[in-house]
Design a protein around this nucleic acid. Structure first.
Lengths: 190, 190
DNA sequence: AGTGCTGGCTAATGAGATTAGCTTTCTAGC
DNA sequence: GCTAGAAAGCTAATCTCATTAGCCAGCACT
C-alpha cells in the first residue's frame, strides 16, 4: 500500500476540512481517518489521541484568528483599530463557522495553547492600550471586548440568531457599543 | 428489585447533578444511570436517547434562567432593569457553571426548546422596550445584550478568564458598556 | 543489496449508545 | 384478596468509536 504521506499538520487539515463541512459534532478519529484516506489507528502515528487532535485544531484556529486580527489592526489605532479587529474577528467566524465552533473552550494546560491564547490576547491588549488604560482597567476592557465579540461569534456560528434582521447591522451596533464603552461615559439618564 | 421510581424529570435531575459536579464532558447515559441507581438501558423508559436528555437538560436550564431573570426584572425598568437582568444572569452562571456550559448551543427544531428560548428572549425584549426601541432596533439591541452577557457567561463558565483581576468588576464594566450602548451616543473622539 | 526507522495495516479490547425481549412491580377493577 | 395489563427494571446483544499491540512494507542512507 502506497504511503499517504500524512503528518500531524495533515491530520489537522483533514479535521479542519471535516468540521468546516459537517460541523463540530462529527469530529471523530474515524471520520478524520476516512477523510485522510487512512485506517483509524494510523492516525496515532501522528497525534497522541482525540484530545490531542482537538487541541491541535484549537491551536490552529487561534493562530489563524490571531493572524487575521494582527493584519487588520496594523497601522490603525483606537476606534479605528477596534472596529478593524471586530470586523476581522467576525469575518473569520463567518468564513469558517464550523471551525470556530469546534474550538475547545475548557482551559488547557498545554503550553502551546496557552501561548496561542496569549498571542491572541496580546493583539487585543495592544489595541486597547491605545486608550488610556493601564493595569486592571486594561484587563477589564479586554474581558468586555472578548465577551462581546466571542458571544456574538458563538451565537452566530451556532445559528443562535433566529430572526431575519440583518446580522451585519447588529454587529455594527455591537461594535458601537464596545467602542462607546471604551470612552469616558456621559452622565446616564436612567 | 425495588423500583427506584424514576421519571423523565428524575433523569434530568440526575443529569443536572452530574454536570454540576463534574462538568459537561461527563454527561453520558452510563454516568446518569449510575447516579440514578439504575442500569443504563432503564433510562430509555424515560427519555428517548442521549440527544433527548440533552434537550431536556437545556430546556430545564433555559426555564431556570428565565425564572431568575423574570424575578429580577420585576418592578424595574430601563438601566435599573438591565442591571438587574445582567446581575441575575451571571449569578445563575456562577451558581451553576457546569449546568450552563452543558446547554446545547445548536438550534433545535423541538418546539418545547423554541418556546423556552422565546420566553427567555421575551424577558429581555420586555426590558429593552423600556428604551425607545422598536422593530429592527429592538432586535439589534437584544442581540447585543445577548452577545455580551452570553459571551461573558461562556468564558467564565469555561474558566476562560485566566488573569487574577476581579471578575465582578469586569462584569460591572460590561454592564456599563451594555447600558451605554442603549443610550444615544455622544460624538466620538476617535 | 542491506538495515533501520517510520507510517500504514489488521486484530483485539473496552466504553458507551441503543435495541430486543424477559421479568417484576404496581394499580385498577373485580 | 386476586388478577390482568401497563410500566419500569434488567440482562444480553449489537454497533460505533477510541485506543493498544504487534506485524509488515516503503523509504533513506549506507
Amino acid at each position: 500500500m502506497p504511503r499517504v504521506g500524512l503528518s500531524p499538520e495533515g491530520v489537522v487539515d483533514a479535521a479542519i476540512a471535516l468540521v468546516d463541512e459537517e460541523g463540530p459534532a462529527v469530529l471523530t478519529l474515524a471520520a478524520v481517518a476516512a477523510r485522510a484516506g487512512v485506517a483509524t489507528p494510523s492516525l496515532y502515528k501522528h497525534v497522541r489521541n482525540l484530545a490531542e487532535l482537538r487541541r491541535l485544531l484549537t491551536l490552529r484556529v487561534l493562530d489563524e484568528l490571531t493572524e487575521r486580527l494582527t493584519t487588520a489592526a496594523l497601522g490603525r489605532s483606537r476606534d479605528d483599530a477596534v472596529q478593524a479587529l471586530m470586523r476581522a474577528y467576525r469575518s473569520y467566524v463567518v468564513d469558517h463557522p464550523g471551525r470556530y465552533a469546534a474550538m475547545e473552550q475548557a482551559p488547557d494546560p498545554d503550553p502551546r495553547l496557552q501561548a496561542a491564547s496569549q498571542r491572541l490576547l496580546d493583539v487585543i491588549l495592544a489595541v486597547l492600550r491605545g486608550y488610556d488604560l493601564a493595569g486592571a482597567d486594561l484587563v477589564h476592557a479586554a474581558r468586555c471586548f472578548r465577551s462581546a465579540v466571542h458571544g456574538f461569534a458563538v451565537l452566530e456560528a451556532a445559528g443562535g440568531f433566529g430572526l431575519p434582521e440583518d446580522l451585519e447591522t447588529s454587529y455594527q451596533r455591537l461594535t458601537a457599543m464596545v467602542i462607546g464603552g471604551l470612552h469616558p461615559h456621559p452622565p446616564s439618564r436612567g
